[in-house]
Amino acid sequence: MSFIKSFIEQETARRRDFLLASAYGLVGVAASTGVVSAFAQNKPTVAWSYRDRNNPYWHAIVSGAESFVESVGYKKSELVHLLNNGSSEKSLADIKALLSKTGGKAAIACDANDAPNCRPVVEAVQKAGGHVATIWNKPDDLHPWDFGDHWVSHMTWSDEGPAEQTARILFQAMGGKGAIVGVGGIAANNPAIERHRGMMKALKDFPGIQLLDYQPADWATQKANQVMQGFLTRFGTKITGVFCANDSMAYGVLEALKAEGRKLPVVAYDGNPEATDLVIKGELLATCFTNPHWGGGITAALAYHAAVGTFKPSAEPKEHREFYGPTVLVTQKDAAEFKKKYISSTPKYDWKDFWGPGRGQIKYVAKP
């Protein structure tokens, strides 16, 4: 059985178990251990609110956070995991529950799941007197400096440019002609919007390539598999290339193509270990690495150090409150070297160098 098929089956089982646990009120119970331990040590509780540890991207995020908490004297098990499984409502409810349990003495790293959920999250943290550092999703008109020291920072990745690069690699591999389909993330997610925008920007320079359809698959392997099956039913052999907005969805796309006996050029995004191997083998043309281990660790570090008073966020310049994380394009030419540097061994990071690998202050695209 291929790892892709196993990945889809694991995703299905995980979703089933999550729904059962939710029904019996079990989700989030394990988080209390880290809260109690932090109280005993008179330290802030450190938590990460995220989607799903079975996803390689989020696993890398949280591995970085575990590395950070160990560097400041916590046990790895003391990091509190607030798993929202893609639910913004659960994300907010879990954060509010943690703030209530800790009396606001919490350092929270968070992806709000979608942009609209960011405001209630940071408002809840500010009201409780906690500290939160966020990644990926927030409205363009919402900024950490409007919340004093409680919203420590926001990091995102400049996805439009790298997504445009991966799309150009796809279109060039197609010889500048043919027809593609696209598989995107959650519609309200900032990275989903930027990656779609990057693909569309590249498409303007390739008049010989037609976009047949672009559908969201919510970053999920199984849903991407279903979306791709639908594309194959509707368009058949007209499809000559596939743009995927993340690696996990690309796995579902590749499995759907394999079931139909088709081999097409496919590009993805995230630089997960499995995707890197697929690039080396030539089954994916390219992916784009956002260094989630560093991102997960430094986001937790920012929240923690603000909570303990190592630095005062409101005294920092705006480029330290909102900034881009690093990206690395991975193609077959450099995938083996990339794997050796970032996957086979994890680089050692200085968790007090908050902004070193960053790529400068976030810039906003003017709305038409």
Rank of each mutant, 00 (worst) to 15 (best):
V36P: 00
Y74F: 13
Y74G: 01
Y50P: 08
S88N: 08
N54Q: 14
A65P: 05
G34T: 10
G73Q: 05
K76S: 15
V35K: 02
S87R: 08
F68G: 01
V69Y: 10
G73S: 09
E89H: 05
A60N: 02
A40R: 08
Y74P: 01
G86K: 04
S88Q: 12
V72C: 10
A65C: 08
L82Y: 07
W58F: 13
R51T: 14
S88L: 08
V46H: 04
H59I: 00
N54D: 15
S49G: 05
S77N: 15
D52A: 10
T45L: 13
S88G: 13
N42F: 04
S63I: 05
K75D: 15
S63N: 14
S63K: 05
S71F: 14
P56A: 09
L82W: 04
K76L: 11
L79Y: 08
G64F: 00
H81V: 03
W48C: 04
S77L: 13
V36F: 11
N85P: 01
N55R: 00
P56Q: 11
G86Y: 07
K90R: 14
S49K: 00
N84H: 12
H81I: 02
N85L: 02
A47M: 06
V80I: 04
G64V: 01
W48G: 03
V62C: 06
I61F: 10
S49L: 03
S71M: 12
G86M: 08
L83C: 11
S91D: 13
E70R: 05
E66R: 05
S87V: 10
S77M: 11
N42E: 15
S91W: 00
L82T: 02
A47T: 03
N55A: 03
N55I: 01
H81R: 12
R53T: 10
L79A: 13
A40Q: 14
